[in-house]
Design a protein around this nucleic acid. Structure first.
Lengths: 141, 141
DNA sequence: AGACTAGTTGATATTAAATCTCAATTTCAG
DNA sequence: CTGAAATTGAGATTTAATATCAACTAGTCT
């Protein structure tokens, strides 16, 4: 299904469905976690793909554009992505010690975005709430 | 007042209050807007300071550590900071076209953080909500 | 199917933000 | 004032991400 969406996206933009793009797409959707470009590149190599770093970066940008993948955050060690298709929207809590990411969802937050945007005459498209703090494990130390 | 807080912070950490650090501090608090390291560096030069880029970066990190300044976001063109002392907490809406930043505050959001953290046994320290979309001016085009 | 056109790839160069290096300098406690 | 310890600046370094471009495909048109 992500494959079809991506394909439609590519046709719309007059772009081509290449071997490399398919491999990146598959790899992105074969795991359900947060990943960086380099990490993805290594996984692809490991899986036998010969796609270059350049192609990984380029395809990742296309996947974000198509809405299948989201760039969650930028750290000092590069960007972090996750695929969104098949997952409902959610936000993140990040532990400042171990960098563990806890996902959460709040219906109220979604409504809040609408209200705030209306008040400021802003046309909200997406939001990301990141809560920084300490996870249960790290707090106990 | 920010000066005193910074000074106390430096003493606590056995660091020194140098000319360069004072100049950076003053420049950061002399304007009330969002800025990047390079921008700050140029303002300092313009104001007659001879502080180097390295010192600007180093001092900026100290100011964040001390709590006087916050790193709002990281864009593909570097980090964006704002000084927080003298300003109440707020979040940001960013226009995807003109990059204009609109500030807003929601008491409800503050409560929401507490509730969500309690539910997930997470010890929340801070949060940042960034709403992406289109500002009024850009939407009209 | 064959061929043409426009987009894609990969290796490498490039860019740019941020940090690191280290000799010379400055702060500040005693 | 003196000395130990921190800081500075200039430039080197690191590293994520993008740009370059000749060789190569995908997909369309006939």
């Amino acid at each position: 299904m992500p494959r079809e969406i991506f394909q439609r996206f590519l046709i719309e933009k007059r772009l081509k469905l290449t071997k490399e793009r398919i491999e990146v797409l598959n790899e992105v959707f074969s795991a359900h976690d947060h990943f960086g470009p380099e990490q993805l590149y290594l996984r692809l190599r490991n899986a036998g793909s010969k796609a270059s770093r350049a192609s990984v970066y380029r395809t990742l940008n296309l996947l974000v554009e198509s809405g299948l993948v989201e760039k969650i955050t930028r750290t000092d060690k590069g960007s972090v992505y996750e695929h969104t298709y098949g997952h409902t929207h959610h936000d993140h809590m990040v532990c400042s010690i171990c960098n563990r990411i806890v996902e959460f969802y709040s219906e109220y937050l979604e409504q809040l975005q609408d209200e705030i945007c209306k008040k400021h005459k802003f046309s909200g498209v997406s939001h990301s709430l990141e809560i920084k703090g300490y996870c249960e494990t790290c707090r106990k130390q």
